[in-house]
Design a binder for these strands. Structure first.
Lengths: 137, 137
DNA sequence: TATTAATTCTATCGATTTACTAGGAATTAA
DNA sequence: TTAATTCCTAGTAAATCGATAGAATTAATA
C-alpha cells in the first residue's frame, strides 16, 4: 500500500501538471485544490524538491512548479522516494538491496527468485504510470 | 514490502511442503528449520490454520501439516492474509475496498484508475507464484 | 528600509503498527 | 499421571506514520 505521503505527492504533482505553463503554485493553493493538510504538504513538497521533481521560488509570490516533464515522472519513482523499495523483500530489491538476516546460506533465500519475478513485473507496470497518464483521464 | 509475518509464513509453508506426506511438523522443528523465532511462529501457524492452509494435531506428538495443495497456495493469498490489500490504495482494492476520504467526488479519485491497472498486473503475477513453484528451484 | 507573504527548517507529538516475548491453559499420547 | 505439544491472551519496546508548531529565511513592493 502507498503511504499517505506518497498518495499526497502524486496528487500534488497532478495538481501542478494541470496548471498553466509558468504558473507558480503556493502550498496553500495545492493543499486546497488537492485536499491535503497544508503543513503535511509542506514536507512532501520539500521531499519532491530534494528529489528534483519540483523547484520552488522563495519569498512573496513564491511557490512550487514542476521541473520534470509530467511524461517522465513515474509511479515507480514516487514510490521509491516516499515508500522505498518496490520489491517485496530487501533481498529482491534493485535499489534497496539488503541480504536477508534469516537466510542461512547467503543468496539462497528460498523466496528471492520468485519475488524478483514479481518485482520485475510490478516495476514495469509502475513505470508505465506517469503523471501525464493520470492527468488525461 | 512483505511484513516479517508474511515472509515467515511463506518459509514455514515451504518447510511443510518439503516434508514427506503424512509427516507432522512440530513448531520448534519448523522454527529451527526455517530460522524463525519460535513464539512468533506459533502465532503465524495459528493464523495459517484459521486461513485453512494448515491444520494441526494437539497434544504430545502433535504439530502442523498442510491441508491445501502446495500448487494452490499463492503468494497473493498469503499477502492478503497477513499484509492485507494488494492494491496500492484502498479505493483500488478488490478485497479490501474503501472509498478515499480525501477525494472530493466519490469514484473520481484521480489515482484510482491507474492504480487498478497496477493491481491487476501485480495480482496476476502474485497468483502465479505458488508454494510449489518456490520449492522446486 | 520596513512590511508582508511566502518558503524552509527543525522539532515534537500522539497514535498505531510491528516484531517479538512471556506465561500459562488446554489437549493428547504414552 | 506426566511430558510434550498446541492454543490463547497479554504485554512491550521500538519504529513508523500522519500531522502540527513555531521560528528562521527569503523576496517583492510600498
Amino acid at each position: 500500500m502507498l503511504s499517505h505521503k506518497a498518495k499526497y505527492a502524486l496528487k500534488a504533482l497532478l495538481y501542478l501538471a494541470e496548471q498553466d505553463e509558468n504558473h507558480i503554485s503556493r502550498t496553500i493553493e495545492i493543499a486546497d485544490g488537492a485536499n491535503i493538510p497544508k503543513k503535511f504538504l509542506e514536507q512532501i513538497l520539500l521531499d519532491l524538491k530534494r528529489g528534483r521533481f519540483v523547484s520552488s521560488k522563495q519569498g512573496k509570490f513564491g511557490g512550487y512548479y514542476l521541473i520534470k516533464s509530467k511524461n517522465d515522472i513515474t509511479l515507480a519513482e514516487i514510490h521509491r522516494l516516499f515508500d522505498g523499495a518496490i520489491a517485496l523483500l530487501p533481498c529482491a530489491s534493485l535499489n534497496f538491496y539488503e541480504p536477508c538476516s534469516d537466510c542461512k546460506t547467503e543468496d539462497e533465500c528460498s523466496l528471492r527468485h520468485g519475488l524478483m519475478l514479481i518485482r520485475d513485473k510490478t516495476l514495469k507496470a509502475m513505470e508505465g504510470i506517469t503523471i501525464a497518464s493520470l492527468v488525461k483521464k
